[in-house]
């Protein structure tokens, strides 16, 4: 899933300056699951914005709606009518969602209410962790299912650096050293010979920006 966090309320308030009729639009997929962009968050954000408006003597239209998925046009049809009534859409989807909406409704400004962080998964209550960088060249078969491109802060392909610190990373003692994890799991699986395999420099042509994929 895609993990995103809400921008500071002050930033959102600033972004919305000059707009009088705003649709706060949630996404019921990834950002709903990471508790930053679903139905509930749309309610809280719209209510916060209304309170801020009232405190400063404004009275703007703040509509609320959440679609199943912002990143597919089929799911955006249901807001056709609402879009006609507003002069801006504040999206609580990821960066893909914001762009899908703005491609679908190119005449109306679509503003990002979130900062998109990474592709990851929930680890424990209220904690999400990054797991994939979408590098286009998966080597998880060689690294015991632990991605060093993503989970090593330097993205090293050939083992740990000297900054490995009792199994943690030099940049953040909260984070595990990916290569220590890989070593331990390969050892457990009896596949340590994979650790000694040389990985050549990454092929950055595996995904050429902007990525495009056609299924055959």
């Amino acid at each position: 899933m895609i993990v995103a966090k809400q921008k500071d309320l002050e930033v959102i308030v600033g972004m919305l300056q000059g707009y009088e009729r705003i649709l706060v639009l949630g996404c019921g997929t990834c950002t709903a699951i990471c508790l930053t962009g679903g139905d509930r968050e749309v309610g809280i954000l719209a209510s916060s914005l209304r309170l801020a408006d009232k405190v400063s003597g404004k009275n703007r239209l703040l509509k609320e709606h959440t679609v199943e998925r912002q990143c597919e046009w089929e799911f955006l049809d249901e807001i056709n009518d609402q879009v006609k009534e507003v002069d801006a859409i504040l999206s609580l989807g990821c960066g893909v969602g914001v762009q899908a909406i703005s491609e679908r409704f190119p005449d109306i400004p679509v503003l990002p209410g979130l900062d998109t962080l990474f592709m990851g998964m929930p680890q424990e209550e209220s904690v999400w962790v990054e797991r994939c960088s979408g590098c286009g060249n998966c080597i998880l078969d060689k690294t015991a299912g632990i991605c060093p491109v993503t989970r090593c802060t330097k993205g090293l392909l050939n083992g740990p650096c000297g900054g490995t610190n009792n199994g943690k990373c030099e940049v953040d003692p909260e984070k595990d050293c990916a290569w220590t994890l890989i070593y331990q799991r390969l050892e457990k699986q009896g596949k340590l010979e994979l650790f000694d395999e040389y990985h050549p420099p990454r092929n950055f042509q595996a995904v050429v920006r902007p990525g495009r994929f056609t299924i055959k």
């Binding site: 500071d8 309320l9 809280i44 916060s48 914005l49 309170l51 801020a52 405190v55 400063s56």
Partner: peptide, 8 residues
């Protein structure tokens, strides 16, 4: 935190 930011 929200109440602070909205000015209440």
């Amino acid at each position: 935190d929200i109440l602070d930011k909205v000015g209440l």
